[in-house]
């Protein structure tokens, strides 16, 4: 085995990798933000709405959770133009990310909402709050505090899954890795480098989310004590 690792050619194309990293960050950042909001919204609708709403939301959640992200991406990217909706690869990718994360977030937040005891809701109602006010002021914050770790894990998984967007040639980090690979032929070195970048990103994101959790649900507060009581 006379193989020698050569990282210099890879480092020489760091600019390409950094471009990719920037796009990955954008996809993940916007995707997580919008996906989380979608999840909260749908979990709320499911809780407050009627039977039909519940069935629709559940169907969406089940469909997304039981099919691969890649296939969802391909349906959106190739399928939408065929019904007259033109999407750039980036737009298709972002839509797929939001729809995918939205389903997982819905499920997680729903579990959080259901963990809030009925008596809390009755206490709110008996103080003459509307159902919406009860949700907003009594249910939501404790529900989110309880599932924050589960949500955080899902966010990290989603960030890592943005790599799949390279399949439709979105020029994010993995796609740029493939570009650099075909220029340099240092396949293993390229992918080791990029893997380490992802790993660093995942660690940073976890720290960030833990920090955010500590700010939103501070230890020693009522919410801090609820943090992470429901998870998977």
């Amino acid at each position: 085995m006379g193989f020698q690792f050569q990282f210099q050619p890879v480092f020489a194309r760091m600019d390409a990798l950094l471009d990719g990293l920037w796009l990955t960050l954008q996809l993940a950042g916007i995707g997580i933000l919008c996906g989380a909001l979608l999840g909260i919204l749908l979990a709320m609708l499911r809780g407050l709405g009627g039977r039909a709403t519940r069935i629709l939301v559940d169907a969406y959640v089940e469909l997304v959770r039981n099919t691969p992200f890649l296939v969802q991406l391909l349906i959106i990217f190739f399928g939408m133009p065929s019904i007259g909706i033109r999407l750039s690869a980036e737009q298709a990718a972002l839509s797929a990310i939001i729809l995918n994360l939205g389903a997982y977030a819905t499920e997680i937040v729903r579990a959080g909402i259901e963990s809030v005891h009925r008596s809390q809701i009755e206490a709110g109602l008996s103080l003459a709050m509307t159902r919406w006010q009860v949700f907003r002021h009594v249910v939501l914050a404790p529900a989110l505090a309880r599932v924050w770790p589960a949500l955080s894990s899902q966010f990290v998984l989603m960030m890592l899954s943005t790599s799949v967007c390279s399949f439709i040639s979105v020029q994010e980090l993995s796609a740029q890795a493939a570009n650099v690979e075909s220029e340099t032929f240092r396949s293993f070195e390229v992918y080791i480098t990029v893997t380490l970048i992802y790993l660093a990103l995942a660690i940073l994101l976890r720290l960030l989310l833990a920090g955010l959790g500590a700010v939103l649900f501070p230890a020693g507060s009522g919410l801090g004590r609820l943090r992470g009581q429901v998870g998977r």
Partner: peptide, 22 residues
């Protein structure tokens, strides 16, 4: 590490790694 990297990267590393190992 496994939970912190994309599955896609594990795939490429296995694919090229096995080839490298001969």
């Amino acid at each position: 590490v496994i939970q912190g990297v994309p599955v896609l990267m594990l795939l490429f590393l296995s694919y090229y790694g096995l080839a490298l190992a001969g």
